[in-house]
Amino acid sequence: MIYEHLGARPRIHETAVIAPSAVVSGDVEIGPHCQILHGAVITAEGGPIVLGEHVIVMENALIRATAADSVRIGRHTLLGTLSSVAGADIAEESFLASGARVFNGARVGARSEIRVHAIVHRKAVLPENTVVPIGWVAVGDPVQLHPAENAAEIGAAQPELDFPGFVFGVDRDTPDLMVQLTERYASSLARHADDREVFRDEQA
C-alpha cells in the first residue's frame, strides 16, 4: 500500500517491486530494482527516505525518518526480517541481519554488517567494513563495540545522548515525561488521518 502523507507521495522506480502488504508512506524515494517484501513499513514522518538501487527490505522490516533525521540507504544493501532503521544513514553494500536495530543519527559505513539482534545506538558512527557481532551494541564516535551485558560501559560511552530530548523534544527530567512524550507523539502521528492511498499508475 502506498500513501501520500503531509502532501508528499512516494516516488518508486518502475523496476522496483513493492509487496501488496508492504506500506510506503510520504516523502520516500525507492530506486531501481529494489524489493520491498511483505509486511515491510517505510514511513517518512516529516523527513525524507531515499533507497538506492538494488536495496532489499525483507519481511516486517521498518524504515522510519523523522523531521530531525532523514534516512538514506545505499545501493546493494539488505535489511533482514524484523530489522529497523530510524533516522540513520546506511552506506552501500551493508547488511542488517534479522532483528538488527540502527537508531537516530547513526551512520553506518559501507560494507558493514550489523548481525542478528545487534544494535547501533543513536549518533554512533561506524567506519567502513565494521562488523557488529550477534547481540552486541555499537556506541559512540569513534565507535565502541560491547556485548549487551556490558551495560555500565555502554552507558558510560553515551551519557550525552538524551533520547527523549533528541527524538521527541521532551527533556528527560520532565516530571511527567511519558505524558508529555506520548501526547506530543500522538499529535504528530494523528496527521496520518489525512493520508490518501496512491496507486502506482497515479505517480507523478
Rank of each mutant, 00 (worst) to 15 (best):
E4L: 06
E4M: 12
H5N: 04
G7P: 11
G7V: 06
A8I: 02
P10L: 08
T15E: 01
A16V: 02
P20V: 01
P20F: 01
A22P: 00
V23H: 13
V24Q: 12
E29Y: 03
E29S: 08
V41M: 14
A44V: 13
A44H: 05
G47R: 00
P48N: 02
P48L: 02
L51N: 01
L51D: 01
A61P: 13
L62Q: 14
L62G: 07
T66H: 15
T66Y: 09
A67N: 14
S70E: 00
G80D: 13
T81S: 08
S83D: 06
S83F: 05
S83E: 04
F95P: 02
V102C: 12
V102I: 15
G105H: 04
R107F: 06
E113C: 08
A118M: 03
I119G: 04
R122Q: 15
V125R: 00
P127K: 00
P127R: 00
I134N: 11
A138V: 10
V139T: 00
H146M: 11
E149D: 12
A151G: 08
A152T: 09
I154V: 07
G155C: 07
Q158S: 08
P159V: 12
L161H: 14
P164N: 08
V167T: 07
F168E: 11
D171A: 15
D171N: 03
D173T: 13
M178C: 03
Q180N: 06
Q180G: 05
R191C: 07
D201F: 10
